[in-house]
Design a protein around this nucleic acid. Structure first.
Length: 337
DNA sequence: AAGGGCCCCTGAAAGC
DNA sequence: TGCTTTCAGGGGCCCT
């Protein structure tokens, strides 16, 4: 299930293969994927354009197109797509925006290459490129979307598209300079919701999905049902570092393959072996040996260590009244002053 | 604002 | 063995 590290891995592998190349033809096999455009409208807008670069925001992939004026320039080496555009100053001509949802793939294939039947059956959009290769959107679950926006590429432009409200509302990238400890602290303080569902909220932080939310909380030793605004500064700090650490490590390992995920060249990710909580129900916690538990939060399976990730309040059922009262008073006085 | 439920959709796994 | 049911999951959307 592609989350940010998987989508970033797809971005890198796809960019290295398609950046700078012209789209010769488009085949839309399932019209619903390009809605609200019709297959004809979608093909007409995209055909003949050049893929200047492949970008990413959260879990969205963005193919930036230019008019096919200048030759594609450098064939985007290992450095990725962003370095492109130094030579040719072609005009921006719109963007193809792809969300893989949970089972989507973006594969670079030779033109006409026949894949296994299951993949052929669920190939929904094919971009035929110059140079005898094609970029295929394959989705076993049919949840994904391929959208087109003209020029704009700003939040307002995305917000106007019926399928891109989420992109328009994305929060900061976890590895970007916008995502700071202070930002996280302030954001958490404003919310009373449980921390796990909040981490899945793409407008809060972009790119975390079920796997990395669980892993981040596990690493930070925070129970998934803790209220966001009740986390202590130490815990917020730990969470901040856990999120950045996990995401960076997962990208370095080219993502996590549980079932179907592969990158733009069909390779699996290697991070699954390093997961310590997600999918490890009943297995021993790597820190304390307690069996990992699974609960459901906001409709998502959630994995955690009940000993390392405690829920305060659940166990101090018989607190000595005197002490509690005194502590409260003291705290109140401090706050008032 | 929070949270529950539903929906999209298919394949795998579990149940019978 | 084979058929049927359940579940998983990203994220939008509606309702309370």
């Amino acid at each position: 299930m592609p989350e940010m590290p998987e989508v970033e891995t797809v971005r890198r592998t796809v960019a290295a293969r398609v950046a700078g190349r012209r789209i010769e033809a488009v085949e839309v096999r399932r019209p619903k994927f390009v809605e609200p455009l019709t297959p004809e409208e979608f093909a007409q807008r995209v055909t003949g354009r050049r893929i200047a670069e492949v970008d990413r925001r959260g879990k969205y992939l963005i193919l930036r197109l230019t008019e096919d004026g200048a030759p594609g320039g450098a064939r985007a080496g290992s450095g990725g797509a962003k370095a492109n555009g130094a030579g040719a100053k072609a005009k921006p001509a719109g963007e193809i925006i792809i969300h893989l949802k949970m089972a989507g793939r973006l594969l670079v294939c030779r033109t006409g290459e026949v894949l296994e039947p299951k993949l052929e059956k669920h190939t929904h959009v094919v971009f035929r490129l110059e140079g005898d290769e094609e970029l295929r959107h394959i989705d076993l679950r049919h949840f994904g979307r391929v959208s087109y926006v003209a020029g704009a590429r700003d939040r307002a432009g995305y917000a106007a598209h019926p399928k891109l409200k989420g992109l328009a509302a994305l929060g900061p990238e976890p590895l970007s300079p916008d995502f700071t400890y202070e930002h996280l602290k302030a954001g958490l303080a404003r919310r009373k919701t449980k921390i796990k569902p909040l981490l899945l909220d793409q407008s809060f932080v972009a790119g975390l999905g079920n796997i990395y939310a669980d892993e981040s909380l596990y690493r930070a030793r925070i129970h998934p049902e803790r209220r966001a605004n009740e986390l202590k500064p130490r815990e917020v700090r730990a969470l901040f570092e856990a999120i950045q650490g996990i995401i960076a490590e997962a990208i370095a390992h080219r993502g996590t393959t549980i079932a179907t995920y592969v990158d733009g060249e069909g390779r699996r990710g290697e991070f699954a072996a390093m997961l310590l909580a997600y999918g490890r129900t009943g297995e021993k916690c790597s820190r304390c040996g307690t069996p990992i538990e699974r609960i459901v939060l906001g409709g998502r399976s959630t994995h955690f260590c009940p000993k390392c990730q405690k829920l305060p309040g659940a166990k101090r059922r018989v607190a000595p009244r005197k002490k509690v009262a005194r502590t409260t008073v003291r705290r109140d006085q401090k706050v008032v002053q």
